[in-house]
Design a protein around this nucleic acid. Structure first.
Length: 559
RNA sequence: UACCCCGUGGUGUAAUUGGCAACACAACUGGUUUUGGUCCAGUCAUUCCAGGUUCGAGUCCUGGCGGGGUAACCA
């Protein structure tokens, strides 16, 4: 998927520069990438960036992008994750055609490569226990120690490796290691493990195998099998690149792919690591993987973040090697600007205050025309019925209003959105002095946005619903999951969880919104964007994001 | 401490072969508006530091300083 803005972008990021060079020098004829998730969890916003880069770059160069499940660790992977990932990638707007692969498609070829390595004296079977291997790897600035099994003959290694495959050893009894250099400055080059024994059923190959390649043994070779030219991944794989190249140059691969790393996405007030997300879900801090507070694709989709907004957000974030953190407001801006274009407007009241318009008769019904979306050139409208009793927002009335408050006050006037101007004649309070009702009169000359000749225009316009026809609907509103901008850096992130990340309330909506189909998104005027929760039994609105509120900001300053 | 990567406004990115530091978000001003929304205009930077090369350095060179990653039989 490419958008034209992408093509018009004047400058090129460093990966594009590399690709241009590869093309110009004839190293590749076309661009082929892949998105390689491990099916051990759900996709999140960080993956969305990777997906946009992988698929986006391929599309931009008229090339292809594969979907590849990196399933080399059967103890963690499940089919349900495969299905969820497919759905998420499609929802984000990308298509891998027929090119869906699994690392496990290539287990037999990878095994043959391992034997080839053994034959060439580049790999050996090591009987050292895990702890021993770890200890002998040395450390930063400290050379490792060679394993006593390092000098086994190719014949013996081959016999042992075949015995490993045949299931003759217990899990952990031995591994296949690359024979590189135990003193290498890059710890990953100190005879990395290539194959290990794992007696766990694999979600696709069942019990056909009891030895599995490690990430390093599998990834680059799978890239080669699939014809991937540019293997794009995140920065933490930088140190793996020498190993990637070591393998790809030593093995008889059909093509030598190339790994390029870019920085992963961080966003303020949330966490984007699979481990943290698992903890949030499993410890019950949220209600599941599709909890609208989560930055998972399922959570954001449910909440109402459009795929288009996520794509434009990822495009704006850019592609670099700098460790950086995008502000949450960026994401919200992307969501708002998309929804502003597309969401039909409706009216709803969150905290109602009863207003009796005394100049409207008991059974009188006044039809007003409301614009569905001012951003939509079609100018479609819908009727809304004004009656004697309406509900307005409590916040839209203040007894002792400051000068710049241009909503309703005693004796003051406001316009009812799409309706007439009303004036507050009387304030009715209960025994405790709380305002419970307003009595107002309306000016029939002011319908249709009209201000009579020579009279002063009212500055305030407030939303409302007719009390008789409004329907009360459950509402969930959200705040960031974490209060700290960078929860990932916290020693005790649990104590930073925002206790009001979800608030349950109600919304009084106009009839035209009460029949919302699941998944439908509206802008409730002056409040925000709301989506009918597709996961709710009945109708429930989720507040996707509020509107920008400069008045609230102003108040925050003075208080 | 070993190796790898990275330092441009509050944030994220730009800046042709070395040539007026640009865009977006945020913040702050103001204008328009039947949403205090949208839209429009304006304000907000000694390019980590120190030397050097040059008529001219964010860009090139040297040396510092700072940040991140890496020591799973995870990916």
């Amino acid at each position: 998927m490419t958008d034209s803005a992408e093509n018009e972008r004047p400058s090129r990021h460093f990966i594009e520069v590399e690709i241009d060079r590869d093309l110009a020098e004839g190293r590749v004829q076309a661009v082929h990438t892949r998105f390689p998730p491990e099916p051990n969890g759900f996709l999140h916003l960080g993956h969305a960036k990777a997906i946009c880069v992988d698929f986006g770059l391929a599309a931009q160069y008229g090339g292809l992008c594969n979907l590849r499940f990196d399933d080399t660790n059967p103890s963690k992977e499940e089919t349900r994750f495969v299905e969820a990932i497919q759905e998420d990638v499609r929802w984000l707007g990308f298509d891998w055609g027929e090119r869906q692969y699994y690392a496990s498609d290539f287990f037999e070829q990878l095994y043959a490569f391992a034997e080839a390595l053994i034959g060439a004296g580049d790999a050996y079977v090591d009987d050292l226990p895990v702890a021993e291997i770890r200890a002998q790897r040395g450390g930063p600035g400290v050379a490792g120690t060679e394993s006593p099994f390092r000098s086994r003959s190719a014949e013996e290694n081959l016999r042992l490796f075949r015995a490993m495959r045949a299931g003759e050893f217990q899990e952990g009894h031995c591994v296949l290691r690359a024979k590189i250099d135990m003193a290498h400055a890059n710890l990953l080059m100190r005879d990395p493990v290539l194959y290990r024994i794992l007696k766990a059923p694999h979600h696709r190959t069942g019990d056909a195998w009891c030895i599995y390649p490690t990430y390093d043994m599998a990834h680059g070779q799978c890239d080669a099998f699939e014809g991937v030219t540019h293997s794009l991944c995140s920065l933490e794989f930088e140190n793996h690149r020498p190993l990637y190249e070591w393998l790809v140059q030593r093995l008889e691969v059909p093509f030598r792919p190339r790994q390029i790393e870019f920085s992963r996405l961080n966003v303020t007030h949330t966490v984007l690591s699979k481990r943290r997300l698992v903890e949030l879900v499993e410890e019950g801090h949220v209600d599941g993987w599709d909890d609208p507070r989560l930055p998972t694709l399922q959570g954001m989709r449910r909440r109402g973040y459009p795929a288009e907004a996520l794509r434009s957000f990822c495009a704006r974030v850019g592609v670099t090697k700098v460790t950086s953190t995008a502000e949450l407001s960026w994401l919200e801006d992307a969501v708002r600007s998309e929804l502003n274009r597309t969401a039909p407007r409706r009216m709803a009241v969150q905290a109602p205050l009863r207003v009796v318009v005394t100049t409207i008769g008991e059974d009188e019904v006044i039809r007003c025309e409301a614009v569905d979306n001012p951003e939509d050139p079609s100018g479609a409208t819908r009727p809304v019925e004004l009656r004697r009793e309406v509900l307005i927002e409590q916040d839209d009335f203040l007894e002792d209003a400051p000068r710049k408050f241009f909503r309703l006050r005693p004796g003051g006037s406001v316009r009812l959105r799409y309706g007439p101007v009303i004036t507050c004649d009387e304030v009715i309070k209960d025994a405790d002095g709380a305002v419970v009702e307003l009595r107002c009169s309306h000016d029939p000359r002011t319908f249709g946005g009209v201000t009579p000749e020579g009279e002063k225009k009212v500055k305030g316009i407030i939303h409302w619903v007719a009390a008789a026809t409004a329907e009360e609907v459950p509402l969930w509103t959200f705040e960031p999951l974490f209060m700290d901008p960078n929860p990932a850096a916290l020693e005790d992130w649990r104590s930073d969880l925002n206790p009001t990340s979800r608030t349950e309330g109600t919304l009084w909506v106009e009839p035209a919104a009460a029949e919302a189909a699941p998944g439908e998104t509206y802008q409730f005027e002056r409040l925000g964007y709301y989506r009918a929760d597709p996961a709710a039994a009945g109708l429930r609105f989720l507040r996707t994001v509020t509107l920008r509120d400069t008045w609230a900001k102003e108040q925050g300053k003075s208080s």
